[in-house]
Structures are given as structure tokens and as C-alpha cells.
């Protein structure tokens, strides 16, 4: 593996699920070999970029690729949406980071993914399936047009419950509605994994709590190094403070302090807004000059 940045982290495939959500397949054979469900990477799209933690959505050991699903929410992820085309390279991608999810003994598992969380729940679901568990997946989106990977899930899990907030596809309601249905049908579910926005994971943990179902959630706080060095990603779990990057990112959802997590996710919201505004202003300015470079 040469240390030539031009030859590394090549984007070999891309798929756009909606105008905000896109998938990148990045070549990194060593990482594809090492990756386990639940782990994440940190990417930098260019030299001036920030370090963005992204949960690994899939990996292909034969092809030597890592799959990432990204939602264009801030300046960096929108910029990547424009620049990360097939054949281009990321400036940096390091990982797999974090502790692999502890898959194992559970016989019947509920895998819950909300929005972008649908992507990272996939490898966990696959992992449970390979370990011999009966897997019920609940995936939720705002509306039908945002749905992705439905077939991929159907091909892998034993039962799939699709939820949309507006009822345009599957069950009307949030993932918690789907979870209630699943639990009503399968009182013997012995583990639940939920990944999505913090508010969704909080809701999911509350659904399982009265049933005493062990529930793991994957946390996504602000990070820099991802190696335990900065402490920016610290989260409250029970009475202890943990670093999501090296102690997690998976934690017991019944112990996580989600309010603390959500407050901490807003740490840089004013700076993020400023960066976003500046960037979109620049894009507007740049558009007439380079019509070929713009998106359709």
C-alpha cells in the first residue's frame, strides 16, 4: 500500500437515495477485512476539511470496499455530496474505529433503524443473522421517497416492518410503532439494537424498557480524533462518563443519558450554521461561472 494520497481511498461506487442521502463505496481492502458490525470510520474529504465520523454501513471483503451512507446536513456533508463522485478520492479515511458490536447469544433480535440509521443497522442485522438469530427489522423513514435498502433488508432478515411518518409506505408512524407491533407479536425478543437520531434511540429505549428487553444503541457525538485522545465524544452512561470512540459507540440504551447527548450534539451549532451559510453563498456565486460543474 503506497502512501500516495492519490492512490488511496478511491470512491468506486455511488448511489443517491434522495436529494439529501447518498451512498459511497470506498476502496480500502485492509479495512474491509478488519471491519466488524458496529464500527465506524472518520473521513476527511479534503485537506481543509473536518474529521467526520460515519458508521460503517456495509463492507465487502472480496471487493475490498467500505460502504458509507451519508446525509447532507451540514457544510461538509453537502460539499461531499457535490465532490465525491466515482473515481475521486477522499483525503483521509481511518478506521475501523470503536468496539465491534457484541453480537452473540441472542436468539430473537429486533433491529431498529431510523432514517440514516437504517444504513448502520444493516451490518449488525447481518451479523445477528449469521450468528443464527431470528431477526426482525424495523426501519423507518419520513416518507416513501426517502426509503432505501428495503430489498436489501428483506433479503437478509426474517421479518421486516417498514414505517413511514406519513403512511406513504408500510405502517404509518415512527419506528416505535413498528417496534410495538413486533414486540406484541414476538414476546420472546431477547435483544434490541436501535440506531438513528438520538431522539429516535431514546424513544426506542423507552419502548423496550417496560419489557425488560436489552437494548443497545449506537451513539454519534461530535468527535475529532476518534482514538480516545480528545474526549469530545464523552457521553453519560449510567453513573459513568464514557468516550464513544473507544468505549463505544454501542452502549446500553436504558442507561444512556440522551438529553445530555442531544445537548452536546449542539455544541457547535452556531459555527455550523455560519459555515453552511458562507458555503451556500459561495456556491450561489460560483454557479453561473461554472455551469458544467453544477448538479442537474
Amino acid at each position: 500500500m503506497a502512501d500516495d494520497p492519490q492512490s488511496r481511498f478511491e470512491i468506486v461506487a455511488r448511489e443517491d437515495f434522495s436529494d439529501a442521502t447518498y451512498l459511497l463505496e470506498v476502496r480500502h481492502p485492509l479495512m474491509a477485512r478488519a471491519a466488524r458490525p458496529g464500527q465506524f470510520v472518520i473521513v476527511m474529504s479534503h485537506e481543509h476539511g473536518e474529521r467526520i465520523p460515519l458508521t460503517i454501513a456495509d463492507y465487502d471483503r472480496e471487493e475490498g470496499t467500505i460502504t458509507l451512507v451519508i446525509q447532507a446536513v451540514g457544510k461538509s456533508t453537502r460539499e461531499m455530496q457535490q465532490t465525491c463522485t466515482v473515481g475521486t478520492h477522499l483525503y483521509g479515511m481511518v478506521g475501523p474505529m470503536g468496539m465491534p458490536s457484541p453480537l452473540g447469544k441472542a436468539k430473537k433480535v429486533l433491529c431498529v433503524g431510523g432514517g440514516l440509521g437504517v444504513a448502520p443497522i444493516y451490518p449488525q442485522m447481518k451479523g445477528f443473522k449469521e450468528a443464527g438469530a431470528y431477526v426482525i427489522a424495523v426501519i423507518g423513514f419520513r416518507t416513501k421517497s426517502l426509503v432505501f435498502w428495503q430489498e436489501k433488508f428483506e433479503a437478509c432478515c426474517d421479518e421486516l416492518i417498514l414505517c413511514t411518518d406519513d403512511g406513504s409506505a408500510g405502517v404509518e408512524g415512527r419506528v416505535t410503532t413498528g417496534m410495538e407491533l413486533a414486540i406484541a407479536k414476538h414476546p420472546d425478543i431477547d435483544e434490541c439494537v436501535a440506531i438513528g437520531p438520538p431522539i429516535m434511540m431514546k424513544g426506542a429505549a423507552e419502548v423496550t424498557r417496560p419489557h425488560g428487553i436489552k437494548t443497545m444503541v449506537s451513539l454519534n457525538p461530535v468527535m475529532i480524533d476518534g482514538t480516545g485522545m480528545c474526549g469530545g465524544c464523552r457521553v453519560k452512561v449510567g453513573d459513568t462518563v464514557k468516550f464513544a470512540c473507544v468505549d463505544g459507540p454501542d452502549f446500553d440504551g436504558h442507561k444512556v443519558d440522551f438529553d445530555d447527548l442531544m445537548a452536546r450534539l449542539g455544541r457547535f451549532s452556531s459555527q455550523e450554521k455560519a459555515a453552511m451559510k458562507r458555503w451556500s453563498d459561495e456556491c450561489r456565486m460560483a454557479k453561473p461561472v461554472s455551469p458544467a460543474g453544477g448538479k442537474e
Partner: peptide, 29 residues
């Protein structure tokens, strides 16, 4: 765990390695 509390490592890494002092020319705030 308040948002205005951070480790020196984080402050210094942001400023030095990630060039946050040149925000928004660099993306790290």
C-alpha cells in the same frame, strides 16, 4: 459535561492540527 467544558487535548487539536483558528477557511470550528 456542559458544552463549554472541553479537554486541553481537544482545544489544542482543533487549533493546531485541524487549523480551527482559521475557521471557516478550515472546516473545524
Amino acid at each position: 459535561s456542559l458544552n463549554g467544558v472541553l479537554s486541553a487535548n481537544e482545544l489544542l487539536t482543533r487549533c493546531n492540527l485541524m487549523h480551527a483558528r482559521e475557521f471557516p477557511n478550515y472546516d473545524t470550528p
